[in-house]
Design a protein around this nucleic acid. Sequence first.
DNA 1: CAAATCTTCTGTATCGTTACAGATTTGTAT
DNA 2: ATACAAATCTGTAACGATACAGAAGATTTG
Lengths: 347, 347
Amino acid sequence: MDRKTSDGQAGPLPPSGERPTLKTIAFMTGLGITTVSRALKDAPDISSETKERVRLVARQIGYQPNRAGVRLRTGKTNVISLILSLEEEIMGLTSPMVVGISEVLAATQYHLVVTPYRAQDNALDPVRYVLETGAADGVIISRTEPKDPRVALMMERNFPFVTHGRTEMGLVHPYHDFDNERFAYEAVRKLAERGRKRLVLLQPPPYLTFYLHMRAGFERGIRDFGATALPFNTVNLDNSLADIRGAAEAMFAAGDGPDGIVSGSGSGAVALIAALEAGGRRLGQDIDMVSKEPHMFLQWLRPEVMTMREDIRLAGRELAKAVLARIEGRPAEELQTLSYPIPTGEV
Amino acid sequence: MDRKTSDGQAGPLPPSGERPTLKTIAFMTGLGITTVSRALKDAPDISSETKERVRLVARQIGYQPNRAGVRLRTGKTNVISLILSLEEEIMGLTSPMVVGISEVLAATQYHLVVTPYRAQDNALDPVRYVLETGAADGVIISRTEPKDPRVALMMERNFPFVTHGRTEMGLVHPYHDFDNERFAYEAVRKLAERGRKRLVLLQPPPYLTFYLHMRAGFERGIRDFGATALPFNTVNLDNSLADIRGAAEAMFAAGDGPDGIVSGSGSGAVALIAALEAGGRRLGQDIDMVSKEPHMFLQWLRPEVMTMREDIRLAGRELAKAVLARIEGRPAEELQTLSYPIPTGEV
DNA sequence: CAAATCTTCTGTATCGTTACAGATTTGTAT
DNA sequence: ATACAAATCTGTAACGATACAGAAGATTTG
């Protein structure tokens, strides 16, 4: 039972330093550094009594593995990289997203590193950086394109990642997405139910995948509910609110404008409302609108607008869970989820 | 001139691996690893010809120092930790803040790690974590309290940090802050100019430093412009919008309410507007309001509200610059900045 | 011309961790 | 007894970078 506390050997030197390391525990328990390491990761060749003893000491002195040591030796960074477009900032998606991700990572050893990029042209840069420097174990990207070079690159390198948004390359990869098709379809339905027939869509920029979805849902609605789609292509959700407002004002001034609007974002809706009201239209009377609603802004300040909520925080949680699962080797096809529009208070 | 390319020595082994390291460069140049390391950091005992040669090769093969190696050896993490309260999420401050910080860090080797905490009670946890594990070289915290234990702790340990918001402990530390005193004072002035005399303030939670500032500015305005402050203490900016609305509705229902409101946040203003309109008041007629305005929401949907902008992105930039400077040893007293309300379009 | 000095370069040890190849003890089979 | 296997434990080397203490050759000094 009582193994001699080996001494006199080339035993580990006293720890001395500040923060406890494996050496500290080895010294305190009289075990070898290797044994301590293996005990802490529950290796099969360590007696359960020793494991217990090591764990106890480790807990007592508040041992936490040195990340640099682990990373240098194993290559495991314990980092998830969230790659953000600065455009997203405008839409205010970042905050709840980060919160959702953090909620999941909090229970793990993972840290969240945020890496933004400027223009869509540079979207590949941060991904390359992570791949080349091994800066993270997994990556979360958003604003996917149908043929997304980032996805192609990471799949080719077999690097764990998840996308916020789908792609159309015939490649199976983890994603979480909001069902923008359904959103737009339901939006058209609501407008049609109010007798609106001449509809416009404030849509995403055309190179993003969710443009296709939103557009498809919109057009399916148009067909199913016998409405007409008017063009509104001069601006999209990536334009500044001032530009959106400007374009919308021009449209209303041209006369013969829409009697129903679907807005792909809450802030976009604000610009549209400003424009239509500047043009003398009255919401709920001359024209109706359906929009995504990030907060309660529209619901409270323009209750005439019908709103649906997209739960970005949930998206963050799903995305984080998916990368982690991917890192652990779960197959990509099990890591694809959709979320659906949440109806907010009806008028 | 031509130093013999030393060979036959215990020269470095071929690099072989994927990513180039110092060893790779050493092998390619025929120099020692140490020499390469010192050449790259422009040490004085390396000839400028060698430096040039090393730099050239390093650039050619795209050498980037291994972060884990540096971190393990030197303790330098090249990480800035942004410690966030989940409460901030609600106010949507995170996004532009992260963007601002990233803008500054992009030009450096630093990565940004986001570490959120749940309740105000746990605010100390992430700070302790960073201090104990050495997870970062510098920390950015916000939501400071007059006697902030995080500040005390980090100063005691002489750990580089900057706060978003000031403290009142007689400790000199780097900060960036928005002048909420001025904001509230100017807000009262605007209301007084419109003849409003019975004012309420939707204020921050009382334990935060900027409560004191906003309150002070408000009350100074009250005195200077001969108005009256009505109590509105049941809720603050940390409460949910629903709660704020509820409390405001109760206030209006009680009769004899305010004829002017100062709202410390844009989203809070929305709740207040919803409440006052539900109570039959009309903005700009029965009552006036001044608010911070994060976007264009208020300006476009309730142009009657007078707004001022707080540039959070700028705050992010200033905070990042300050931690970096502090890490480089600049004295704290040189790293204290204030930003001022930006008037948005007048009615 | 030997000694001292300067210039430039390099090997060794180390940070904390883990993979790997033993080592030691104990128990089992022959 | 002797060999063999099982159960536990441990030293060494390595990941990539840098601090430190030389080392080798060239140059100056008296």
